[in-house]
Deep mutational scan, measured.
Amino acid sequence: MEVRTIKVFTTVDNINLHTQVVDMSMTYGQQFGPTYLDGADVTKIKPHNSHEGKTFYVLPNDDTLRVEAFEYYHTTDPSFLGRYMSALNHTKKWKYPQVNGLTSIKWADNNCYLATALLTLQQIELKFNPPALQDAYYRARAGEAANFCALILAYCNKTVGELGDVRETMSYLFQHANLDSCKRVLNVVCKTCGQQQTTLKGVEAVMYMGTLSYEQFKKGVQIPCTCGKQATKYLVQQESPFVMMSAPPAQYELKHGTFTCASEYTGNYQCGHYKHITSKETLYCIDGALLTKSSEYKGPITDVFYKENSYTTTIK
């Protein structure tokens, strides 16, 4: 009895394709271990004539594949690729409408935090270190965002349907971005203890939790000093293409032309909904596939993004 075979390709990165001759009487799992086709788990399936010449994702289970996976995804987590594939199996079914010149995501599976993050990423200057993220990001900007969303979920250790947080998501993504040249110098002034300067680099240099107003941050924000008295913390120097200011959701007025974009969060910790506000020729609110415009805006804002380049204080 002759062994019926077909020729397929296996890959971990969709760049390096490895030619395989597979036995049609055995499952993919018996031949390769966990195997995925377009995100779908085909591990328990036997090869079919229609699979001839198709590319299958496999887990990096030998040295060659491990090197290829690390170079593309910059992670050695053995569960990463499987999590990416199972997320992709959902995100490829989502709709990605162009809204006001940006790629958004039609609401499904509690994905409003991903839509808000995706919209924000198209408006701030950011370059990702893992080629996987950078490639998928370019495709997302062009309207094909399924891979990018699935990668975000995998890097953030999230599953489809789980509630997510924009600030946490951005923080994970910033860790995989090139923020080497970003720098922030802060000064804390206390009447009792004097003053202390701190220099922050990388992710810490672009994120701040405690106030939404970048102007206020430049002037000074009140913080408790270690001595128990009130101290003032203010920005001395900022070198970065953008800054992200966050605070627990509270009524906040966004003035046209003073910011790049913002995240609105309605609801409580267990259950809520994100919308995205962007400042173009007027203010726009993007909620999944829905767009509304207004000249002014007041609502429960939790993150505001500002364009920056270089700032030095005039406070002496």
Rank of each mutant, 00 (worst) to 15 (best):
Q195P: 13
Q175R: 11
Y208Q: 05
I152L: 09
F128Q: 04
K201H: 15
N309L: 09
S246F: 00
K233L: 15
T19P: 13
V99D: 04
C190Q: 06
K106F: 00
K218P: 04
T278C: 10
Y284Q: 11
V206F: 00
F242N: 05
S246P: 07
F128Y: 08
E253D: 12
Y274I: 05
Q230E: 13
H90E: 05
M244D: 00
L119Q: 04
R141F: 11
L153W: 09
K93D: 11
V21K: 12
V12A: 10
Y297A: 00
I6P: 09
G299E: 00
K280Q: 15
I105L: 09
A250W: 02
S213P: 00
P78E: 12
P131T: 04
N49S: 13
Y96Q: 00
Q175D: 02
A146C: 10
L254N: 00
S246K: 06
L59Y: 15
K298T: 15
T266C: 05
L59E: 14
L65N: 08
P47M: 03
L186S: 07
Y73E: 04
E68S: 08
Y234G: 02
G82Y: 10
N61H: 12
L290F: 14
W94Y: 06
I152C: 08
T282S: 12
V67H: 12
Q197A: 13
K127A: 12
P130Y: 06
V22L: 11
M24S: 12
E71Q: 11
G33P: 10
Q195E: 15
N49V: 13
P131H: 06
E308A: 02
A247P: 10
G210D: 01
I45M: 14
Y36Q: 11
L291C: 10
T43N: 02
R66K: 14
G82T: 14
H176K: 09
Y269A: 07
V22D: 00
C193H: 07
L17E: 11
V8R: 05
Y306T: 00
G39K: 05
V8E: 06
S181R: 13
L163R: 15
N147Y: 09
T103C: 08
I45G: 12
V166E: 03
K219L: 11
H256I: 14
Q222S: 11
L179V: 11
I301Q: 01
C285R: 02
H51R: 05
H90C: 14
C285E: 02
K316L: 15
K307V: 09
T76L: 14
E2V: 11
V42L: 12
L186R: 04
K95A: 13
K191T: 13
A247S: 05
Q237V: 07
T312M: 15
D180P: 06
S246E: 02
K201A: 03
V206Y: 02
T76Y: 09
M244I: 04
D109S: 04
N61S: 13
A231F: 01
I124Y: 07
G194F: 09
M26V: 13
A69Q: 12
C227H: 03
L65F: 08
C225N: 04
I45W: 15
I6K: 07
V67Q: 14
K158C: 00
F242H: 00
T199P: 01
Y96K: 09
Y113C: 04
Y311I: 06
V3Q: 15
I6Y: 09
M207K: 03
E68C: 01
L179E: 01
G299M: 04
L283Y: 05
S294M: 15
E253C: 03
N111T: 05
Y252V: 09
D62A: 09
D77T: 05
E2P: 11
K233N: 04
T199R: 06
H74K: 11
K54L: 15
L153Y: 12
V304A: 00
D62N: 12
K127I: 09
Y234K: 05
Q270W: 08
L88K: 05
D180C: 10
D23S: 14
L254M: 06
D303H: 05
K255D: 07
E168T: 09
Q20Y: 10
L290D: 14
T232K: 04
N129H: 11
L121K: 02
S25E: 15
D62Q: 06
T226G: 13
H51F: 01
L17D: 10
V203A: 13
F174C: 06
S86Y: 07
K255E: 14
L102Q: 09
T10A: 07
P47C: 03
P47N: 07
R83L: 10
S171P: 01
T226E: 13
K44I: 15
D165L: 04
Q195R: 09
L200E: 08
Y138L: 15
T258M: 13
D135W: 08
K54C: 14
T192W: 04
P130K: 00
A142R: 13
A150R: 01
C225K: 03
H273S: 00
Y36W: 15
T43A: 12
T302F: 08
D287Q: 04
K93N: 14
H276N: 03
D165F: 01
F242L: 01
L235G: 03
T211H: 01
L186G: 04
M245S: 01
N157S: 05
T116V: 15
S50A: 12
Q122S: 05
N147L: 05
L17P: 00
K54I: 13
G194I: 01
N111I: 04
M207H: 02
Q196D: 10
Y28F: 13
F259W: 08
T169F: 02
L254G: 04
K106Q: 14
N89I: 14
V99K: 06
F9P: 04
S310C: 01
L151R: 03
R167Q: 09
N111F: 12
N147R: 09
Q123P: 06
T198G: 00
P130C: 08
G228C: 03
T278R: 01
G39Q: 08
A145F: 03
F305N: 08
F9L: 10
T19D: 12
K92H: 08
V22Q: 07
S213V: 01
Y214N: 01
Y252A: 04
F32Q: 15
V189H: 12
Y297L: 02
K219T: 09
Y72W: 11
E125I: 06
S213E: 04
E68R: 08
T10D: 11
G267Y: 00
Y84Q: 02
V12E: 11
Y311L: 09
A154F: 03
T314G: 13
G202E: 09
K183P: 02
C190D: 09
V243W: 04
Q196E: 09
V189F: 08
S171H: 15
H90F: 11
Q134W: 02
T302V: 10
N147V: 09
H273Y: 01
C112S: 00
V243E: 06
S181G: 12
Q197G: 05
T258F: 02
N268M: 02
Y234T: 08
W94V: 04
S104N: 01
L37T: 10
T211A: 08
R184L: 04
V243L: 05
G288Y: 03
P34D: 13
M209I: 10
P97I: 10
A289T: 10
G202L: 05
A247N: 01
C156N: 00
S171Y: 15
T27W: 15
D287L: 00
C112L: 04
T116D: 02
K293C: 12
E281Q: 02
N309P: 12
G161T: 01
V8T: 12
Y265D: 05
T27P: 15
A40F: 11
G194A: 10
D38R: 11
P224A: 14
R184W: 09
Y214I: 08
Q237S: 14
V42M: 13
N49K: 11
Q134Y: 03
G299F: 06
L17T: 12
K255G: 03
R167H: 02
V58L: 11
V203Y: 11
A108H: 00
N110E: 02
S240C: 05
H48C: 11
L153M: 10
G267W: 05
A205D: 07
A250F: 05
L17A: 12
R184I: 08
R139G: 09
K280H: 04
V12P: 07
S279G: 04
T314W: 10
T278S: 12
G143S: 04
E52S: 12
A142F: 12
S104T: 14
P47G: 07
Y96H: 11
K7F: 09
V21W: 14
A289W: 06
Y214F: 07
K183H: 08
S79R: 11
K44M: 10
P97N: 09
N178T: 03
F56T: 06
N157V: 05
Y113P: 01
K93M: 01
